[in-house]
Amino acid sequence: MFNFRRFFLISVPYIWLLLLFLVPFGIVLKISLSDSALAIPPYSPTFDLSAGWAGFREMWAAFDFENFLWLVDDSLYIKAYLSSVWIALVSMILTLLVGYPIAYGMAKAPEEWRPTLMMLIILPFWTSFLIRVYAWIGILGSQGYLNQFLLWIGVIDEPLVLLNTSLAVYIGIVYTYLPFMVLPIYATLEKLDGDLLEAAEDLGCSRISAFWLITVPLSRPGVIAGCFLVFIPVVGEFVIPSLLGGSRTLMIGKVLWDEFFANRDWPLASAVAVILLLILIIPIVLFQRQQQRAQEAGQ
């Protein structure tokens, strides 16, 4: 029997996602193969439905990989891809180093504190990302609060250059992505069986070696999930490098934005997007596999 209700329930979100998620990607792919042109819209060939099949063949014939060759040819783009991945890797490690002790402290805290601590970690996540990045402009500027403070206690004689450097970008990333690292690690640490640690100490382990031999290996799923949750979005990050980074901090999200809004080169911007997506597919697939394995292990 044809179930109309079920059909309706499935098709509404399905068609919505097809039209507003999948089809747009098709268009990006199509435009990345087109040529840049001084027209509105600024690319050719444009697809003309009224020309029918002949029009489609004509459009197909005009496609080439020129934009992608351009990306490979110009070292700016390759540098931008490499430096985005590098910045994402370094800031992932920094976030882990800052986040692990916090998650560990939360898991060790008395049980009645934990809901409050959880809320304190999640609260910044709900406040605007833009505002949290903006807060650092005032802190790191040459007249900023940090420089004023350091001058006042006499550690430095003249203001440090902090804003518009890679350091500022790293600080901004660690600051805004910290909850994504802390929460999954805390989730695994909280479930950790304390008896294991006691057993290890009874058998002569020191507290520190018990930590390295038991706590760290058992928290691995949380660490891996946290690392992916930081790494993947940071590669395409736009707001942090454009507000805190200088002209020398090259990140691909910003290159794409400038290519589109400043240079108005839509085909090139689309090609940048296609390559960025291809780069991200590897970590995304790995992440999904890891999540699946964690789920199966949990059952």
Binding site: P24, I27, F238, L256, W266, A269, A273, L276, F287
Partner: peptide, 17 residues
């Protein structure tokens, strides 16, 4: 997991086309 810049760009190109 798709970066915002890509989602934004693809939607804009859809709306224009």
């Amino acid at each position: 997991v798709v970066p915002d810049v890509i989602t934004g760009l693809s939607l804009l190109l859809l709306f224009i086309s």
